[in-house]
Amino acid sequence: MVKITDVARHAGVTPSTVSYALSGKRPISDATRQRIEASIRELGYRPHAGARALASSRSNVLALVIPLRTGIHVPVVMQFAVSVVTAARKHDHDVLLLTQEEGEEGLRRVADTALVDALIVMDVQLHDSRLPLLRALDRPSVLIGFPADAEGLTCIDLDFRAAGKACVEHLALLGHRCVALLGSPPEVYVRETGFAQRVVQGFTAAADRHGLTSSIHPCDATPAAARAMAERLLREHPALTGVVVHNEPIVEPLIKAFESLGLRVPGDLSVTAICPDELAEQTPIPVTSVTIPAEEVGTRSVDLLMRKLDGMEVPDTTLLPPRLTARASTAPRAG
């Protein structure tokens, strides 16, 4: 393993000079700094994490706060987590994952220690109890999600309102006049989770603008619930020809349920979804979908946080536009 003394010998300086160059505690001439940096690159030297933290008064650890509440689809959440961890490592940071539903108390416990330099917070609710503390903390934070009032916060997410709108407009252009949103489990709406509320807003606004008959149906994330919902929709909305699904686990069970009830997808019923591309592509009938850009959101949230840690200005709001990919599950309305 390459040591700081090896770098010093290679660069022709003392070990303390290398230390000063790494920590920035004392001024080093540009020529000497460049020589040290060249030696570090050539030898592949990596400063010890503890030494870096001591020198910079940083822990080089980010907290990722993901309360795994009921109704949350864990596989998609973990895509965000993996993206954050991967991006953080590129910035030489580790990630402390906090999954308990601890609210403000959990945030305060972490913030009152030297465990982490900054926080990324997920599963943001419209009226989130954690917001006053996040605004008051002396540590930078980034929210993946948007509350009703984002003033004084840095937020990033897919534009879920535009995503709901995009799905409805795709169906409207295909001639569908009666559409339904099959949404997240009921408890997600009870908590006023931001992304779920915004999909409803976009769906409703677009349906109204196009003069469509529309309805909204929260649904538990089980095959049995999907079957019961399919039966209910056919019973209550016999003119239904277009469906938007914002509930990843029921996308495939729902299509199977409709087909078992005698509807052909997309011949009789067009189905769109807001979900990861891999899910949409792997169903027996590939589903027209707006992708969940977990990798991009996670990477950009870390980049925002690192810029804040470096004292740089960042935008308060970053909304990623939806990208809809048409696949085999949608077609013009029959008749």
Score class of each variant (00 low, 15 high):
Leu22Asn: 07
Lys308Cys: 04
Ala162Ser: 14
Ala273Leu: 07
Val95Leu: 04
Glu278Val: 14
Arg33Met: 08
Lys256Glu: 12
Lys256Cys: 02
Cys275His: 03
Ala49Leu: 10
Tyr45Cys: 05
Leu309Ile: 07
Val271Pro: 02
Lys165Met: 08
Cys155Thr: 05
Glu105Asn: 13
Leu320Val: 06
Ser270Leu: 06
Ile292Leu: 15
His91Tyr: 11
Ala162Asn: 03
Gly267Asp: 13
Tyr45Asn: 07
Gln125Leu: 15
Leu153Pro: 03
Gln197Asn: 03
Ser141Asp: 02
Ala163Asn: 06
Ala31Tyr: 00
His176Ile: 04
Val200Asp: 02
Leu107Ser: 12
Arg327Gly: 03
Gly202Lys: 11
Asp277Ser: 15
Gln282Lys: 13
Leu119Cys: 09
Leu309Ser: 05
Val287Asp: 03
Val7Phe: 03
Pro253Tyr: 00
Ser289Lys: 03
Ser56Leu: 04
Gly335Pro: 01
Gly175Trp: 03
Pro284Asp: 11
Glu259Gly: 01
Asp159Val: 02
Thr5Arg: 15
His127Cys: 05
Asp268Tyr: 06
Leu320Tyr: 01
Val290Lys: 11
Arg191Pro: 00
Val82Ser: 14
Thr17Ile: 08
Val65Trp: 12
Gly12Thr: 04
Leu97Ala: 06
Asp30Leu: 08
Ala221Leu: 06
Leu43Val: 04
Lys3Cys: 01
Leu64Pro: 02
Arg333Gln: 05
Leu153Ala: 12
Ser83Thr: 01
Ala88Phe: 04
Leu305Ile: 07
Asp92Tyr: 01
Cys178Val: 11
Ser329His: 05
Asp220Val: 02
Leu64Arg: 00
Ile28Phe: 12
Leu126Glu: 15
Gly12Gln: 04
Thr193Ile: 11
Ser16Lys: 10
Val297Cys: 09
Arg41Asn: 10
His91Leu: 04
Leu173Ile: 00
Cys275Gln: 12
Asp310Cys: 09
Lys308Val: 00
